[in-house]
Design a protein around this nucleic acid. Structure first.
Lengths: 140, 140
DNA sequence: ACTATCTCTACCGATTTGATAGACAAATTA
DNA sequence: TAATTTGTCTATCAAATCGGTAGAGATAGT
């Protein structure tokens, strides 16, 4: 499940990618244009900045811009930053593995093996899509 | 994300599939053997029964058994019954579609188009796996 | 009637989600 | 240097969800 927070993050990144050639963009502008609550967006952008996805500048003429090229921003990583692991259950997570309490033998756990497939399929898609590629997805 | 509830449901179904040739099985037995809180499991099994996945019998010699053949029980449907839609966002859900508040044109929404792929990949796996097939997944 | 079992409804505490509030820090500009 | 404009940080909050518990009720078999 993609949280609204993560969706907002992706919307903001798309907006920045499409508009920031000229310079920095205000939180307020992204908020208005994309219909995202401003104070909520602030937190999201700040988190993305801390993870190197964005850069910012304060004061007049300040604002946000992408921290790297759109072709270098992996959507899977953005989702991980905001929502945590992509895995549908902790016991199949690579980034935040956690054993199931009841599971006796993980290797023969049918459920685990099935949801490993789901995890792999999800990761395959999200880790092979960059922000640049995401921008292209409006023409289907 | 697969909830613990859904995981419990799948565990219970696997247990029933493996053991109910002989007749009905008590909630209490599933609960003990699979390490699932009994009262919680009751609710889960009841829900699965209402959806035709299970059958039950009350009183002495009562208990639960599968409502159809393991080869006819689709894992995707079990997960839907317990957790709701498989889709990662409401706007790409087939069973519980809900428009995004902010989205102006859905067809060109890049995020939507991307997560439609994720949905499709997930559904592809879970709707093409039956309980019978799930049982086989312990031998990888 | 008694007992074993499922059935139903209500409730509960903890966590997460989606957000809001406000003080603070830095950059610019008058 | 004072005012203004922007991002930064921390706290707080209401509502929903999750994982689970409690207990009374219905029904089948003995």
């Amino acid at each position: 499940m993609l949280s609204k927070k993560a969706k907002y993050a992706l919307k903001a990144l798309l907006f920045l990618s499409k508009n920031s050639d000229t310079g920095t963009i205000l939180i307020a502008e992204i908020s208005e244009k994309e219909g995202i609550p401003k104070k909520f967006l602030e937190q999201i952008l700040l988190e993305l900045k801390k993870q190197g996805i964005l850069q910012s500048k304060r004061g007049k003429e300040g604002g946000y811009l992408l921290g790297k090229k759109p072709s270098e921003i992996i959507i899977g990583n953005v989702v991980r930053i905001i929502d945590g692991p992509l895995a549908p259950i902790p016991c199949v997570s690579k980034m935040a593995y956690r054993r199931c309490d009841e599971c006796i033998d993980e290797k023969t756990c049918e459920i685990r093996n099935l949801f490993m497939q789901v995890r792999d399929a999800t990761i395959e898609i999200l880790d092979n899509t960059t922000l640049e590629q995401l921008e292209q997805k409006n023409i289907l």
